[in-house]
Design a protein around this nucleic acid. Structure first.
Lengths: 146, 146
DNA sequence: AGCCAAATGAAAACGATTTTCAATTAGTAA
DNA sequence: TTACTAATTGAAAATCGTTTTCATTTGGCT
């Protein structure tokens, strides 16, 4: 736990960010919870020990931490809700190029085993899933290399 | 396709909702797409054929359809983003309750075979993936039934 | 101690969604 | 067919979460 906070600060420093009491407080709040916290929940926790902090600062700190991959975000960015007609079968998924945004569809995600395992373990009633692969398409790999 | 629209109207009627041209238009728009559509995207499609419709009506129709389980909603309602400290053990995924927003983590997504298949077929360089299952947790299934 | 870019907080701006309310309309009953 | 009523609609305002702006403060360097 304390190890996590230390490591997080090192990582911030390494990337040229400053360590402020506010950032420490946000990191402590997230590291001190094993639940997923919404920005508002993080704000409330931080305020207990640090009443004068602004919600804006919480958002900005979250942005930095997520940008460095130090915290993990549920729900990829972009707009929040989307809808699809519920059909008997057919569904598909996306393979997205992070550089040019090209989207390739694919089917046969073959998640049935995984789904049954989850149903058994969590007792959830599962309605669907969202699966996206992210990477670079052939063209972009050629151009940008790396 | 037409079958889907018909069935949807029947289901609305059965539940005491009226069939209006606006609702027909929204249903057509969603049924006519194999992609997940955001409310705004639905609105834009509907306006092509029905320019005077209000965005509010689109939202209200979506709400009714989703409430009856006729369309499937990606991303649980309520606030959109939540964060968790990324710990050494790392890579995990989410199972999200669409009703109360509860998030259960799981690991072992076992997507390596699928990933190699996609690399072979598309020549993408794959950097990562996003996998979320959506459903109802045990508590919410009990409350809401269905 | 002093400097400067980075970070902060308050307020305003913003976009998505919801509520309010008066006017319209679908579906039923006469 | 006409008339009635509750449901539905659209416009505007309200609300919620998030982002931007900007003047002030501060961490980390010299």
């Amino acid at each position: 736990m304390i190890y996590t906070e230390k490591r997080t600060e090192q990582e911030l420093r390494k990337n040229g960010f400053k360590i402020t009491p506010q950032r420490r407080a946000v990191i402590d709040a997230i590291a001190g919870s094993h639940e997923h916290l919404t920005p508002a929940a993080i704000y409330n926790r931080v305020r207990r020990e640090h009443p004068s902090i602004g919600l804006v600062t919480v958002y900005r700190t979250i942005e930095v931490l997520a940008g460095l991959g130090l915290i993990c975000e549920t729900h990829a960015g972009g707009s929040c809700r989307s809808y699809l007609m519920r059909r008997p079968s057919e569904h598909h998924h996306h393979l997205i190029c992070s550089d040019c945004g090209k989207v390739v569809d694919f089917t046969n995600c073959d998640l049935d085993d995984l789904e049954s395992r989850l149903v058994k373990e969590t007792r959830f009633k599962i309605n669907g899933h969202l699966l996206e692969f992210l990477g670079q398409c052939l063209e972009c790999s050629k151009i940008k290399g790396r």
